[in-house]
């Protein structure tokens, strides 16, 4: 009881402090707010810069993508690393390696689907129909991040979800036979390696880390702007690889309590 009272007091103080600060905020959508128009004494407004210059710099119509993958690409790379580190941490904590019964032997998909009851047949057939569509849409989301909402994280989550759906509908072994453990860890590493590889390639060609403009001679593009645009697609693919595999890895470890034998 006492702890609840103390917790309530702490939460109340925190909340009221936050609300007290809100009174000072610029009004919602105010074009003259500091975030939109900049403040005297500082550098010119970055929002204005992004709105007016980012298309000229990168030839990417979606501002969010250019900020995410180019201007602040260093942050995004580390966000991907956060996802990867999360997957590794879950592996480190949950994975049970001691019990060496038998390695999950790949079962044919037909076996798992046909042997089940009618429920299985309905679910299995639906998944057969849905999973390719999900994955195709995921690829569209990844590739279309330049023009519409989307990109590596969203597309990666979709691909990961398609594997999770397979694991839920059939069983974990079926999903793992498509993407087994050493491979998903490798693919996650390759994803970040693609991202960071673009950065290092820029360093080798004389720019700073992730300065995609200098990749122009390697990517055979018309100008540094298009090189930026293409490299962003490249790093988005890297992000998608890591996110999708780690999504599945986290599900597989959580659902089977770290044994990777039987899922939910």
């Amino acid at each position: 009881m006492l702890t609840k009272v103390i917790a309530f007091i702490a939460v109340a103080i925190t909340g009221s402090l936050l609300l007290y600060g809100v009174a000072d905020f610029p009004s919602f959508g105010d074009p003259n707010s500091p975030a939109n128009a900049g403040v005297e004494g500082g550098a010119p407004s970055i929002s204005q810069y992004f709105i007016t210059e980012s298309y000229k710099d990168t030839k990417v119509p979606n501002l969010v993508t250019s900020v995410l993958a180019d201007y602040r690409g260093y942050d995004t790379m580390f966000e991907t690393v956060v996802v990867f580190a999360g997957g590794m941490a879950i592996f480190a904590i949950l994975r049970v390696l001691r019990s060496k019964e038998e390695p999950p032997k790949p079962q044919s998909r037909a076996e798992t689907f046909v042997h089940g009851d009618h429920n299985r047949i309905i679910v299995g057939t639906t998944c057969k129909l849905v999973i390719p569509v999900i994955q195709l849409f995921a690829l569209y989301v990844i590739a279309h991040g330049h023009h519409s909402p989307g990109g590596g994280f969203q597309g990666g989550v979709l691909i990961g979800a398609s594997f999770i759906l397979l694991a839920l509908a059939a069983d974990l072994k079926t999903a793992l036979s498509r993407l087994n453990e050493p491979n998903y860890i490798r693919l996650a590493c390759i994803g970040i390696l693609i991202y960071a590889g673009f950065g290092v390639l820029c360093q080798i060609l004389g720019g700073n880390f992730l300065d995609y403009g200098v990749l122009q001679p390697v990517l055979f593009t018309d100008g540094p702007e298009m090189a930026r645009s293409h490299s962003m697609l490249g790093v988005e693919i890297g992000v998608a690889l890591t996110v999708s595999t780690i999504m599945f890895a986290i599900y597989a470890n959580l659902a089977s309590r770290g044994t990777l034998n039987e899922g939910l």
Partner: peptide, 18 residues
């Protein structure tokens, strides 16, 4: 929200000037 930037030195410049 108050400064419109995330760069530490830019924030400091704004806080000092404004």
């Amino acid at each position: 929200l108050k400064t419109g930037t995330l760069n530490m030195h830019d924030i400091q410049a704004i806080l000092q000037a404004n």
